[in-house]
Simulated assay, not measured.
Amino acid sequence: MISFPNAKINIGLNVISKRADGFHDIDSIFYPIHLHDVLEIVKNEDQNSEKIIFSSSGIEIPGNSPNNLCVKAFNVLDEKHNLPSIKIHLHKVIPIGAGLGGGSSDGAFAINMLDELFDLKLELSEKLSYASQLGSDCSFFIENKSAYASGRGEILQEIDLNLNDHRIILINPNIQVNTADAYLGMVPKLREELLKDIISSIIKKWKTDIGNDFEESVFAKYPDISSIKNQLYEAGALYASMSGSGSSVFGIFEKGIPKLNFPPDYLVVKV
């Protein structure tokens, strides 16, 4: 069984408060985009071998395989459903540490695939619960629809947001931003208006009304990321922003996307 876990962008990201459990409450819009990994899960015919065999290709994945969210997804389900032995292969395309939720998407897609592969007949609420155990934004990718995100990112409310009539370009400068480091020094603050109440306004107004709290600290440390956003606005973007805690930046254009000049090691893709 093969699937194609996709990335997401954050349209706005406000850090509202720090929680007693060490996480932060956020206010954000999650929007799925067309940038995909490739995930294959098959039953292992040799049931006497180890429970899970994980391999990967494409972008190098740091850390050990037990820490990969696909593996963790299997372990979470296996604990309750005693699953047969499987093989997982992940071809990594979505940049890592890029604010695009690539790892979270892989884990959530693995839950959906395992549910189908072994006919577990999981309720949506069960899959969302399993996904929330993997990471703050994993639950989003279970349904994979535009959503207003609150809590630590796991409380989702579907919204009517469709950008198919616009053109979105994504630029990743080959910089990895550690999310935990990005939160250091962040001063949470409440907003008078939530993003779910602003997102329905015309996109041209987003430039002044919708921001990303991580930009100030990340731009200060990585000026090249700030430069990308500036270039997108200079090229005529209706809205441009860093996604998540970085390092990817996206621009939304009304019609065609003009020619943009970025260094050859940057990922530049229309999504």
Rank of each mutant, 00 (worst) to 15 (best):
K259W: 05
L35V: 09
E254W: 04
F118W: 13
Q133C: 06
Q133S: 14
I16F: 12
R167G: 01
P32F: 06
V268H: 02
S129K: 13
V249S: 00
F109W: 10
K80A: 07
K72P: 01
P264F: 03
V177I: 15
G153M: 13
P95V: 13
G97D: 07
V38Q: 08
S57K: 15
L124W: 08
H89R: 05
G101N: 12
I41A: 00
P263N: 07
S241N: 05
I142W: 01
S217R: 12
L122S: 10
K270S: 10
P66A: 08
K72E: 07
L128S: 08
Q133V: 07
Y31C: 02
G63Q: 14
D197C: 02
E154T: 09
H34S: 14
G102W: 00
K8G: 01
K221H: 10
E60Y: 13
K51L: 13
G211C: 07
P188V: 12
E116Y: 11
I159S: 00
K229D: 07
S200F: 13
D21E: 14
P264K: 12
G244F: 08
Y31N: 02
I159T: 08
I9H: 00
I61H: 11
A182T: 11
K189W: 12
L190G: 06
K80V: 07
S28Y: 06
Q176P: 06
K18T: 06
I59T: 14
F141P: 03
L114E: 04
D25I: 01
L156H: 00
A131M: 02
K87E: 15
R191Y: 14
C70R: 08
R152D: 13
L120Q: 07
D265V: 12
T208H: 14
